[in-house]
Amino acid sequence: MEIGKPKLKVQLGSIQLKNPVMTASGTFGYGNEFTNYVNLHHLGGIVVKGISLLPRPGNPPPRIVETEGGMLNAIGLENVGVLAFINDKMPFLKEAGTEVIVNILGDTVDEYAEIANKLNNIKGISAIEVNISCPNVKKGGVAFGADPKMVSAVTRAVKDNTNLPVIMKLSPNVTDITATAMAAEQAGADAVSLINTLMAMAIDSETRRPRLANIIGGLSGPAIKPVALRMVWQVAKTVKIPVIGIGGIMNTEDALEFLIAGATAIEVGTANLINPAITGEIVQGISDYLSAHRLESVQEIIGSLITE
């Protein structure tokens, strides 16, 4: 019997993606930077560069440093701010032919609420992804994502101010990521995405100086993939809402591993910086894998890890 083209559609809460491959925030700009290299129409979704209430200039350089099997960044959340995003970036994005997920960030719970509110009735936005790896300035700078109570508070604040599905992007810089995942789920999150970067640093032994002006930055790339896979697997077993897997996905095989671990969709991050066409290649790669294994749908591999 001839098997037709495998079905790649996945459901993230109330939104349907044409396939499970999305871009991770901060590695794909606002989409328009990549049109020379990849057909955006082929992607499951684009998660745009994180947006704050007001524009942010970002950190002084050096902002990036290469490490073994990855890189550190301390960009400092440079972005155009929510109003410029709506006016200047959305006209292109809403015609991109893929789901547009807007990543948001804030210094206070109220700020998250206000951004969510401003984005609520904007046409062309499919969902909100909430970056909670930034410091809460009212709580001594502890990251929101480090404390389940703060995760709940941010989740509720965003949910109360939007009709869009809300994806909470979890920080890996915690003792037990299932605790923050459960907090997000109980507070009404429609999905969780994980992991954000791992806090890390690099030092130049000759000058005895840190390699980043910010001293500390976020580690991404293949170096973090095993950590991310473990966390995705643990969270997928714990919550009922969909899980989006992120962390060092460089190719189709990596993406499949996250799906097998229980992710309903994946976000490709740092790999975009090295191969700007990678997301399209992974979409094709997943389809080829399913065909080769005579599977009709990507659903058959999601959470299919064999442990006995």
């Binding site: 700009g29 930077e33 990036i64 960009i75 440079e78």
Partner: peptide, 28 residues
């Protein structure tokens, strides 16, 4: 020349300071 990750304007890693911020507040 600066350290660059992507070269295509996505990572925002390759900044140098501007002498004056732009009207929209860009400092780099």
């Amino acid at each position: 020349e600066t350290m660059m990750a992507c070269g295509i304007g996505a990572c925002l890693g390759c900044v140098i300071p501007r002498p004056l911020p732009t009207e929209s507040g860009e400092q780099y």
